[in-house]
Each structure stands twice: as C-alpha cells, then as structure tokens.
Computed example of a mutant assay.
Amino acid sequence: MIIENLDALKTWLTKTLEPICDADPSALAKYVVALVKKDKSEKELRALCIDQLDVFLQKETQTFVDKLLKL
C-alpha cells in the first residue's frame, strides 16, 4: 500500500480505532501503519491485517480493514 500522507493516515486511524477497540488507539494506529507498509498484494495485505487485527477489533475487524484498504 502506498502511503501519500502518513500524518493524515495516522490521524484517520486514531479517530477510527478509538470507538471500536480497547487498546490505545495511537499505539494501534502505529501498528496498522507498520502492517500496511509491507510489500504485499492487496489480497495478501487484507488477509494479514484481518489476521493481526482480529485480536484487537474482533467483530469490527472486517469492516475496519475494508475501510482502510479503500483509502
């Protein structure tokens, strides 16, 4: 995933994650950025994000990953 504006992405992630998880949204946003920076196809990236974020987001994981990959 090509990230054009890292600060804007982190801001969006923090705001989006805050109401749907118990983890620190800022720390989780940094983790998500690290995940999406990996050099993988969109299909591989989707599977990786769903697998890694499920523990934090549970039933919200699929919806969150869909929104994230549409950015």
Rank of each mutant, 00 (worst) to 15 (best):
L13E: 06
L28F: 08
V36G: 00
I2S: 14
S26K: 15
K15G: 11
K15Q: 15
I20V: 15
C49M: 04
V55N: 09
K37E: 09
V36F: 03
A23N: 13
L17Q: 12
L35F: 06
L13D: 08
F56W: 08
P19D: 11
K59F: 01
L9F: 02
D54F: 06
L57G: 04
S41V: 06
K40V: 05
I3T: 06
L53A: 02
S26E: 13
K38H: 10
N5I: 02
T63L: 01
T63M: 00
D24P: 12
Q62I: 04
K30L: 08
E42A: 12
L68N: 02
A8F: 05
L45H: 06
A27C: 08
E18R: 15
P25S: 09
S26D: 14
D24V: 14
F56T: 05
Q62V: 03
Q52D: 08
K37F: 02
Q62Y: 00
A34N: 14
L28P: 11
A29D: 06
V32I: 00
K38S: 08
R46Q: 07
A27W: 10
E4R: 13
W12A: 09
K37Q: 11
D66Y: 03
V32W: 02
R46K: 11
K37H: 02
T16L: 11
D22F: 15
D51E: 11
Y31D: 06
L69R: 02
M1V: 13
T11E: 12
E42L: 11
C49F: 00
L68I: 01
T63V: 02
D66W: 01
T61W: 02
Y31I: 02
A47W: 01
K38T: 09
L35A: 01
I50R: 09
L17E: 14
L69Y: 04
F56L: 04
W12K: 09
L68F: 03
L53N: 05
D39F: 06
T61L: 00
A8L: 05
A34H: 13
E44T: 04
A34S: 14
F64S: 00
N5W: 05
L6I: 10
E42K: 13
V65F: 01
D66L: 01
L48D: 11
